[in-house]
């Protein structure tokens, strides 16, 4: 009995220690298997997508699936790479969780309104850009905030999302403003509505989606940055990256891309989908 207890104790203890050793654990133990080979074998590509972002990736409460531009592009790419029966599996991510999840190998690629930036390129690889967004502002209709310049005053609170590039940008464009970082876009919109900040800043595409859901709010000031969205892939996965880029080219060439773009952005007020067509 004593032996058993001791044995179980050691196991339990090891389990606990594991967690703390993670920090010391070397980064190389990261699963460096070839994603493309694995995905071909399982006939599935696992994508990290947003679930709280209208137009790009939004959870449909009716059937518990994620729908949007990102999700459709991911499905289209999956079919190009794996063939007609290829499955696209979606894992919900937020701006905060997406990079760790990719690096950990929980997901094969991120297609979640993610801007290609030099800082991120140090950590992950990007496909060629699949959507050109630009950062803008969402404010209550009739707000005195007309452009990003109006935010640059001490005491002004701007709402953003943790891990989003827009938060880093706004600190550059309006250094005097205080940025409140919420965990995802649903929370950020809720915070804007309850008056926690005067404006919500992120990419225009996302903001148009929010404005269409919330009639009392509008996108103002045009775009003040260029935010090309890319599909993030782990470093060292060049074959997979090549396939993704190839697939992206193909769907742009055969009209799939424009069809998906029109489906999501065709009726969005203020967004010129023809200009964004490829």
């Amino acid at each position: 009995m004593k032996k058993v207890t001791r044995y179980l104790g050691v196991i339990g203890m090891l389990g606990l220690l594991t967690v703390f050793l993670t920090a010391c654990g070397s980064r190389k133990s990261l699963s460096q298997q070839d994603v493309l080979t694995n995905d071909r074998a399982s006939n599935t590509i696992t994508w990290g997508v947003k679930a709280d972002t209208k137009l790009f990736g939004l959870m449909d409460v009716k059937d518990n699936t994620i729908k949007g531009f990102d999700a459709d592009i991911a499905t289209a790419i999956t079919k190009k790479i794996l063939g007609k029966n290829g499955k696209a599996k979606f894992v919900q991510v937020t701006s905060q969780t997406r990079i760790p999840l990719l690096k950990n190998g929980n997901i094969d690629a991120i297609i979640a309104t993610m801007t290609i930036t030099p800082e991120r390129e140090k950590q992950v690889d990007f496909s060629s850009s699949y959507f050109d967004a630009g950062q803008s502002l969402l404010v209550k209709k009739g707000s005195s905030i007309k452009s990003v310049k109006d935010l640059n005053q001490a005491g002004t609170k701007v709402i953003g999302v943790t891990g989003a590039n827009s938060v880093a940008n706004i600190k550059k464009f309006a250094p005097k403003a205080k940025v409140l970082e919420l965990s995802d876009y649903a929370q950020a919109m809720t915070a804007l509505k309850s008056g926690q900040g005067v404006a919500l800043t992120t990419d225009n595409g996302i903001l148009y989606g929010m404005a269409s859901q919330n009639p009392g709010y509008e996108v103002v000031g045009g775009t003040f940055t260029k935010e090309p969205y890319g599909i993030a892939i782990n470093k060292g996965q060049d074959p997979f990256k090549k396939e993704v880029n190839q697939a992206l080219k193909e769907i742009e060439a055969d009209g799939t891309y424009n069809r998906i773009l029109k489906k999501w952005f065709g009726n969005v007020a203020g967004f010129d989908y023809k200009e964004a067509s490829r």
Binding site: Q96, T162, Q196
Partner: peptide, 20 residues
């Protein structure tokens, strides 16, 4: 967005991209 330790932790984790 209460600016406490955990909030800063989230912010630092996504700025430095060194989560753990």
């Amino acid at each position: 967005a209460g600016f406490d330790l955990m909030y800063q932790g989230n912010s630092i984790a996504s700025l430095s991209l060194d989560t753990i």
